[in-house]
Amino acid sequence: MDVAGPVNRPHRDTDPSVIVADDSLTATEARYVTAARAANTMRGYRSDWAEFTTWCTTTNTASLPAEAAAITGYLTTLAERGAKVGTMSRRLSAIKFAHTVHDLPDPTTNARVLAVWEGIRRTHTTPPEQATPLMPPLLFDVLDACPVTRTWTAPGRPAEPDLAGLRDRALLLVGFVTALRRSELAALDVAHLSDHPNGLVLSIARSKTNQTGEHAELVVAPHGTHPARSPVAALQAWMAAADITDGPVFRPVSKGNRPLPRRLHPESINTLVQNAIARAGIDPRPYSAHSLRAGFVTHAHLRGASDRAIAHQTRHRSLATIGTYVRIHQAWDDNAATQLGL
């Protein structure tokens, strides 16, 4: 394997997961190699690696193998351009991964890289941006704004239940009550749903914290006390109207008000949540699909749930992480500033 000088082979520059000796892999081995990393992780690696190799091309610098000076120069450029520390950390991970799968030494552990990186972190680290929680009563306004009926200008076609509106109501309520990540909502299949006297039990085969699927993670969706706000009722209404009996639960809806057989992309879920918020006359920019998960944590805390009970549903491994969602509301708890009588 040639490791000297700049490497500009297109397949390496566009995909860090390609193994040099991949021609020797059997079809089964190649399939397992593809499955070695989550799809979202690989998409991130490809995007970040492409950014690095583009910078290397413009500076006439080798990307694979990369010298320590190239990496520190790249990091410095990013920092001067105002890139976030989290973004730069992801780029380093992609560089490390590309070298690992090509059996090359990891250049990110070089003393020069470590020193520059530590300085950047100390200089540029800022508190992470948190998604604005979407929770009652605002959540109820967003639900009420979901369209119910689809009417047509073509003569002879009667009004129909608006499938996109039914899907969005189910997506919002299930996403809020189960605190699922958008990737988990997108991956949800009918086979993952189990009936229970209290509602539904959802089996999450893989997640951010359980990527190998060694054990299924369980979350619950209670019936709820208000039928119009029941995640179970909303999900059943959507699946019945769309005639979904197997396969993906959440799907795109065509312009002709017909469900499509494929699952929603995680980024599409983000867009759907923002569109639903905009329909309620609310600025959607502070919100994302993660606002449902953040809304669950914050609302449950305000309702008196313990951090341990919240983590039981969100599947957070660290209870300290729960506090990052509710710290703004906790700042008012038992605070003498509220007792000054001013």
Rank of each mutant, 00 (worst) to 15 (best):
Y74L: 04
E29F: 08
G86M: 05
L75F: 02
A30S: 08
T72F: 02
P105E: 11
A62Q: 00
L78S: 06
T57W: 12
S63D: 10
T34D: 14
G82K: 12
R43M: 10
V101Q: 07
T41C: 05
W49S: 02
H99E: 01
R31A: 14
A50I: 05
E80D: 12
A50P: 03
T28W: 11
T59E: 11
T61K: 07
A36M: 09
E67Q: 15
S47Y: 13
V116M: 14
S47C: 11
H102W: 12
A66C: 03
W49Q: 07
E67H: 08
M42E: 05
A70M: 06
S93M: 11
T108C: 09
V85W: 06
T28S: 08
P65T: 04
F52W: 06
K96N: 09
S63G: 12
F52A: 03
S89N: 12
Y74S: 01
A30F: 14
V101A: 06
A27C: 07
T108W: 09
T72W: 00
T58W: 09
T76F: 05
A68Y: 01
P105S: 12
W55D: 01
T26W: 04
K96W: 08
Y45V: 07
R43L: 13
Y32A: 10
P107Q: 07
T53M: 08
T34W: 15
R112T: 10
T87R: 08
S63C: 11
R46Q: 09
L104P: 00
E67T: 04
N60A: 14
T100P: 04
R46K: 15
T72G: 02
T100K: 14
T26M: 05
Y32H: 14
G86Q: 13
Y32R: 15
R37T: 02
N110D: 15
K96Q: 14
R31G: 07
I95W: 01
A70L: 02
A38C: 02
A27I: 10
V113C: 01
A27Q: 11
T72R: 04
H99W: 00
T76V: 03
E29R: 09
A83G: 02
S93K: 10
V113Q: 00
A66E: 00
Y32Q: 10
T26S: 15
A50Q: 09
T109A: 12
R112E: 13
T108L: 09
T100F: 11
H99N: 01
N60Q: 12
A30Y: 15
A79K: 03
A83K: 07
W49A: 06
R37K: 12
M42A: 11
I95H: 03
S63Q: 07
M88A: 06
K96F: 14
R91E: 05
